[in-house]
Simulated assay, not measured.
Amino acid sequence: MNTQWLKTLGLEVPKTTDDLFDVLTAFKTKDPNGNGVADEIPLTGSVYDSVVPFVMDAFIANNWHGGAAGQPVSLGLDGDTVQLQPAQDGWRDGLEYLHRLWENGLIDESAFSQDSDALVAKNSGDGPPVTGAYNGNNPWGFIQVGMDDARDAQYDAIPPLVGAEGQVATYIQPGTPGATFVITKAASKEKQKKLIEILDYMYTTEGQLHGQFGLEGVNWVKPADGDVALDENLEPLYKRVPADPDNKKMANTSWGAIAQYNSNATFRNSEVQPLEIYSPDGFERRLFEATKLYDGLRSDASFPYWNVWVPEEDSAELSTLQTNVETFISTSAAEFITGSKDIGDDAAWTAYLDGLDGLGAARYIEIWQNAYDAS
């Protein structure tokens, strides 16, 4: 959220959905960017970073981040029972609130159609910033970081809103389920042994540094006196050397992200980082500090699909079901929010639920329930 605008208008960070409505209304009507033009966009998003999840958490816990059809982001847990969060009453309540924001002109008209490039361009032109709030996990998705006027420094993460379940944070899952290291029968005994030795090495600190970043003294160095770790409670362990495309010694020295087998929180947070969070070099610390606002607020209703293994015999069927169900939910959410479907009409809501049934939502849930139980 643009906290500079909050200061300009004498407003506090919103804590509830009512607060959020009032803040967004002020952003729209009181010219917080000071250019004398009613060009402010109170709340925006993109086809990937939806406006839905942050607001929806005040009504029902969700892991929904744009309706990613390739992942089961609409699933949740009621105890140990898998369910579709967008088929629950809380989801409808959230859509009703989002529609209220829409009909009052508080949501960007392009929020459900623009890509990230268009959104960044909108906020990075010659004039002052026009965006009040954006739902995403970093500023790169809506504004150019490091411009001469340092406009990205106007934006700070805000805590989850207080809703029916207190404060609940959307959890963006780390990846897709499945194995990340596999040795097949095509490998000889000697190669199998060597592969295990490589993996064992990457589970050491030395191996993780080498595997992920490269050579000491070339791609990374040991901390100097006065260096501070990302987590200031930890001893600094390493400091990455900025990439230099002209330095051939830096090339092809690591596996990068695919070597992150031992990249646990302690390892990551022991990296040396600048203290100034609004400088381009301090971006990692900026994200780290923002994460603290959400620490411990993940709901028990979050479905941990990344730890669930779906049997091979169900995978093809699941792929089709998942694409159809998740796409329908994403499309329907936009339709209800924008008013092309009436969220206040019981018949329209029933037709939506019937549409889910017709696409095989029950079977979709059943496959994931069975896999969850087996895990």
Score class of each variant (00 low, 15 high):
Ser270Gly: 02
Gln322Trp: 10
Ser299Cys: 10
Thr323Arg: 13
Phe288Arg: 03
Val310Ser: 04
Asp295Asn: 12
Ser319Lys: 13
Pro311Tyr: 08
Asn307Thr: 07
Ser315Ile: 07
Gly296Lys: 04
Phe288Met: 03
Arg268Leu: 12
Asn307Asp: 15
Leu275Ala: 12
Ser302His: 15
Glu312Gly: 10
Thr291Gly: 06
Glu284Gly: 05
Tyr294Trp: 08
Ser330Thr: 08
Phe267Thr: 04
Thr320Met: 09
Leu293Ile: 05
Tyr305Ser: 10
Tyr278Ala: 07
Thr327Asn: 05
Gln322Met: 14
Trp306Gly: 13
Glu317Phe: 05
Gln273Lys: 07
Ser332Lys: 01
Arg285Gln: 05
Leu287Trp: 05
Arg286Phe: 15
Gly282Thr: 14
Asp314Ser: 14
Val308Arg: 11
Tyr294Asn: 03
Phe267Cys: 00
Leu293Cys: 04
Leu321Asn: 02
Phe288Pro: 04
Arg286Ala: 11
Tyr305Ile: 04
Ala316Val: 11
Gln322Ile: 03
Tyr278Trp: 02
Trp306Tyr: 13
Glu284Cys: 12
Ile277Gln: 00
Pro311Trp: 08
Glu313Lys: 15
Tyr278Gln: 03
Gln273Asn: 14
Ala290Thr: 07
Ser279Ala: 12
Val325Thr: 09
Glu271Leu: 10
Glu271Gly: 07
Leu287Thr: 14
Leu321Gly: 01
Glu284His: 03
Phe267Ile: 02
Thr266Trp: 09
Thr327Val: 01
Thr291Val: 10
Ser330Ile: 05
Ser270Asn: 10
Thr323Ala: 08
Tyr278Val: 04
Phe283His: 11
Ser299Lys: 14
Glu276Asp: 15
Ser299Leu: 12
Glu317Thr: 11
Thr291Met: 14
Thr327Tyr: 02
Arg268Asp: 14
Phe267Leu: 04
Ile329Gly: 05
Ser332Asp: 03
Leu318Val: 05
Ala265Tyr: 06
Phe303Val: 05
Leu293Trp: 00
Gly282Pro: 02
Asp281Pro: 00
Glu271Trp: 02
Phe303Trp: 12
Glu326Asp: 15
Ile329Leu: 06
Phe328Ile: 10
Phe288Gly: 04
Ser315Arg: 08
Ser270Glu: 03
Pro274Leu: 14
Tyr278Cys: 08
Ala301Val: 10
Asp281Met: 01
Phe283Trp: 10
Leu318Lys: 05
Pro274Glu: 09
Thr266His: 08
Phe288Tyr: 13
Trp306Gln: 07
Ser299His: 14
Leu293Gln: 01
Glu317Val: 09
Arg268Thr: 11
Tyr294Lys: 05
Leu275Pro: 00
Pro304Asn: 14
Asn269Gly: 04
Leu293Arg: 01
Ser332Met: 13
Asp300Ser: 11
Leu287Ile: 15
Val272Arg: 04
Leu321Lys: 01
Glu312Ile: 15
Glu317Asp: 13
